[in-house]
Simulated assay, not measured.
Amino acid sequence: MSAIEIQQQVNSNYYFNLISFTLLFYDYFLTLDWEVSRYWGSAWNVPNALFYLNRYGTLFGTIPVVFQYFWTTESTPHKLAICAGLHSYHQYFAVVTQIVIGVMLILRTYALYDRNRRILVFMVCIAAAVIGVGLWAVLSGPGAKTNEDDEVLALYIGCSSSVSSSETLNLAAAWGGMVVFDCMIFILTLYRALSRRRLSSQDLLTVLLRDGSIYFGVMVMSNLGNILTFALAGPYTRGIPTTFANVMSSIMISRLMLNLRDPALSTMSGRFSRSTTVTGNGIFTTYLGSGAPGEQTELATGVNYTDTGIELEDRLYR
């Protein structure tokens, strides 16, 4: 491969990752006011902890990845050693990010199915298999490189190394597992929503189906694009959508959680109704106060572990 071809691939890598970083930080500031109004001051529980872990774990955890691609200094043995560490960090960070997002999707679907343990066991088994494949791809990758592919460029900007042809199958399998997991979550959400289509009040289920469909479409396209780069791209552009896929999955799951606390869900269910139940046993419930003028409004939404199951609540106190 000529030096010009290598430089073109490296530049493509830089530009694509720059787009990913821009989307992450731009969306954070774009939705910060939603986070403040819908999460800050609410009771501390498992969904809140996962929301903050995903949002701020991705935000601050991406900083070393930015450093990996745009660290500007002379190429020295010390820099190359740090670059190797950053490369390993990026791989493990991607796995951890997907695990956190997977847990949030499992809890969301578990609540949608009225805390059905068989559904939970099924989802956990699929997730465990996907995590196993991902860890296998990360742990077995470095030792599988060949001498001709295991090349680290002496670059002034960032750290770029090739992905060997022997690694592509492992990494493509890992991202293929994510496609399988996303398909499972989407099918379960779609089935549950359609099975409740005759109910008189479906606002929350409509939001769940809408957001689930958007999440599924975006993530499947991102993951399939990532898989295709492993099969068709050059050694320095294989897997360049990895950061993009992680960023988009984090953004999408954050918006799913934020949309569940949209006050419009309460007003759509009936401004003066005391309680509107979307499912037969009250698993999704909207509580509305009397609406007396002048009273303070507070939003407190969460997943509560009760004797009757997990409740996704949107409470509007007036």
Rank of each mutant, 00 (worst) to 15 (best):
I187F: 15
I187A: 13
T189V: 15
L190Y: 15
Y191E: 12
A193T: 15
L194Y: 15
R197L: 11
R197Y: 14
R198E: 15
R198H: 14
S200W: 10
Q202N: 14
Q202A: 07
L204Y: 11
L205I: 10
T206R: 14
T206A: 09
T206Q: 11
V207L: 14
V207F: 11
L208W: 02
L208T: 06
L208D: 10
D211I: 05
D211H: 04
D211L: 05
G212N: 05
G212K: 04
I214W: 09
F216I: 05
F216V: 00
G217W: 06
V220H: 00
V220D: 02
M221L: 12
N223G: 06
L224S: 07
L224V: 15
G225Q: 07
F230N: 00
L232H: 08
L232G: 05
A233P: 00
G234L: 07
Y236M: 12
T237R: 00
R238C: 00
G239N: 05
T242W: 00
T242N: 03
T243M: 12
T243W: 04
F244S: 08
F244H: 02
F244C: 06
F244E: 06
A245Q: 03
N246R: 04
V247D: 03
S250H: 01
I251A: 04
I251K: 04
M252S: 08
M252Q: 07
I253T: 03
S254L: 09
N259F: 06
N259I: 00
L260V: 06
A264F: 02
L265A: 03
L265C: 01
S266I: 03
T267W: 12
T267Y: 15
T267S: 12
M268Y: 09
S269N: 09
R271P: 00
S273K: 13
S273T: 04
R274E: 13
S275P: 00
G280C: 02
N281E: 12
N281S: 12
G282K: 06
G282S: 05
I283A: 03
I283T: 07
F284R: 02
